[in-house]
């Protein structure tokens, strides 16, 4: 293990009858968790975020242990300082886009938090949506707001759970670029869950492969070489 890995996961987690055993290390940049639906990728994110306690093992976030099943250590979700974007945004429907973001800004007076929220909305290309009705936003607009909200707490890690699945193709392309830019500009590591190969090709600096209930392998990705990528993903036989 490298000394300054942003995230080291070596844990099991359960949800109902489903048990997941996962072991991987994220690197700076974007780590993509790739695998079929139901393989436990979202469960992994919930465990990293602290919404779920691992049944065994540990999670290390920026060199500090945030979960250790043996030691019964569990740093609360609120104290982990991660930002999360869910598949359908999970925006608060009763709040305006601006308030969805400002509620997640952790410090400052009400007006300072709003100013910060405005800047975040600009950063994700959602200026002009501040006062719209949250429920009337398009899927792409909702994901932009969700991304701004995820950034509002100045997170040390971004978790994106199938963030582009519900979107049309052109919106996906522009949102992938946005995520790439944010990760690079802010130098914040991100873990992206997907079952879409295009996401892998466009975003992955590192790929973690999932099969139902477990992680199998992890690779540093070379997204510019589709054949290499396909080989890693096991889609074509090794020549």
């Amino acid at each position: 293990m490298t000394a300054h890995s942003p995230l080291i996961v070596d844990a099991s987690a359960s949800s109902g009858a489903f048990t997941l055993t996962t072991q991987f290390e994220a690197h700076p940049g974007i780590t993509v968790l790739f695998g079929p639906s139901g393989s436990g990728k979202s469960l992994t994110l919930a465990t990293i975020a602290g919404l779920l306690r691992p049944t065994t093992g540990t999670i290390v976030l920026l060199d500090s242990v945030v979960a250790d099943a043996t030691a019964k250590l569990h740093v609360s979700t609120q104290d982990r300082r991660v930002g999360m974007v869910a598949q359908h945004g999970a925006l608060f429907p009763h709040l305006t886009p601006l308030d969805n973001v400002s509620i997640a800004v952790r410090a400052g007076t009400r007006s300072q938090r709003r100013t910060d929220a405005r800047h975040l909305l600009q950063e994700v290309g959602a200026e002009g949506l501040e006062r719209r009705s949250t429920t009337s936003l398009s899927g792409g607009e909702q994901q932009r707001i969700a991304l701004a909200r995820a950034l509002a707490g100045d997170p040390q890690l971004l978790l994106l759970d199938e963030p582009f699945t519900a979107l049309d193709q052109p919106t996906r392309v522009s949102l992938r670029k946005l995520v790439r830019r944010i990760v690079d500009d802010r130098n914040v590591p991100a873990v992206v869950v997907t079952h879409d190969l295009d996401d892998v090709a466009a975003l992955a600096d590192r790929i973690v492969l999932y099969q139902p209930g477990r992680t199998t392998t992890q690779h540093d990705a070379t997204p510019n070489h589709p054949a290499e990528l396909a080989r890693i993903l096991g889609l074509i036989h090794r020549a």
């Binding site: 919930a46 919404l51 609360s76 979700t77 999360m84 999970a90 608060f92 429907p93 509620i103 909200r149």
Partner: peptide, 14 residues
């Protein structure tokens, strides 16, 4: 929707 409450916790709300 429990996902809203999860999102609120992740956003740092007590």
């Amino acid at each position: 929707d429990p996902r809203l409450e999860a999102a609120a916790r992740v956003a740092g709300l007590s």
